[in-house]
Structures are given as structure tokens and as C-alpha cells.
Amino acid sequence: MKKAFIKGTILQFLVLLGLWLILSGKYDYFHVSIGFISALLVTLVHLRLNHHLYYRHGIAQVKPLRLTRLILYVPWLLWQIVLASLHVAYVILHPRVPIKPSLIRFRTKLPNVTAKVILGNSITLTPGTLTVKIDDDVFIVHSLTEASFTSIVDGSMPRQVAKLYQRRPSTVIDDIKILRTTKGL
């Protein structure tokens, strides 16, 4: 636990320093040393927050992302964004605007908050679906057409996110309900 904390803090410092170096664009002693000091200060201010993150929430909260999988995941997501935009463009420019909205409610078993953030953002970026609400483990998703929620219902989309953390994830979502009314929400 302590090792992960130190590693995370050093990583944060390096990211901040890199951001400074790219944004400032001046590489004399004065500017670089100011950047060094500011990155150090921000890291110090954040130290208590980091401490809280790594020690209070327990081990399950800071499971590391599998980096090799992330390299595969990002191009997949970019491709999904392209597909989603083409789908939305088709729907909008079609003379009849063929939509049939519905709400889907399901429960996830993802390990931590970061995974839920990734899943929520990915749902918003995949074709025809939009995350409306996340209540602990319960997601409410708005889908634009009948065909667009199949990838969530058969679980292939959430499995992509779960693979970032585990090699062979078990069932990621269950308790799926497709709603055409807002009763009981």
C-alpha cells in the first residue's frame, strides 16, 4: 500500500512537471525551476488527498489499470466514437428522424469508481447510448434507437471496460430492465 502511494505521488509530480514544460515552451533555468517548484507545491498540497485515496478506501479502490489492455482499449473507443457520430448523423439527416428512445436500467459489478467513470464515458461515446444517472451500482442509460442498446444488454461493451482490470471478467452487469415509461424511477 505504501509503495503504491509513493509511486502515485511521484507519477503525479512528473505529470505536472511535463504539463508545465509543454505549456510554457521556455527552457531556460528560470522558467524550468519555477515549474519545478510549482509542481512540487501542488504535489504537497495534494499529499493529504492522495493519502486519503490510498489508505482510507482500502486495496480494492486502487487496482492498477492493465496498461497493455489500455493500448487496445483507446483505439477501440476512438473507432466507437466515429461509429457513434456516423450513426447520429444518419439519424439526424434522415427525413423521418427514425428514433425510438428507451431507458435501460442495469446493475454493474465493476470494482471501483474509476472503472465506473470509464464505463459511463464509454457508454456516452458508443453509438446511440447516453449515461443519464449513476447511483452507486445502478446505471440508467438513455438509448436513441432500438438497435443501439444491444451491445450493453449482451454485455460486450461493459466487458471491454472490465478487461482493463481483470484478464477474464465474469458477468459484469445484471438486473437489466428496458423501460418505455418513467414510472418507478
Binding site: 466514437i81 457513434a84 457520430s85 450513426h87 447520429v88 448523423a89 439526424i92 428514433i99 428512445p101 456516452t124 461515446l125 453509438p127 446511440g128 447516453l130 443519464v132 438513455h142 436513441l144
Partner: peptide
């Protein structure tokens, strides 16, 4: 909500 689809993706 469907307008959110348009702005969020496109």
C-alpha cells in the same frame, strides 16, 4: 435527452 445524443457525440 435525444438532443444530448446529438451534441454529445457529433
Amino acid at each position: 435527452y435525444s438532443r444530448c445524443h446529438a451534441t454529445g457525440k457529433a
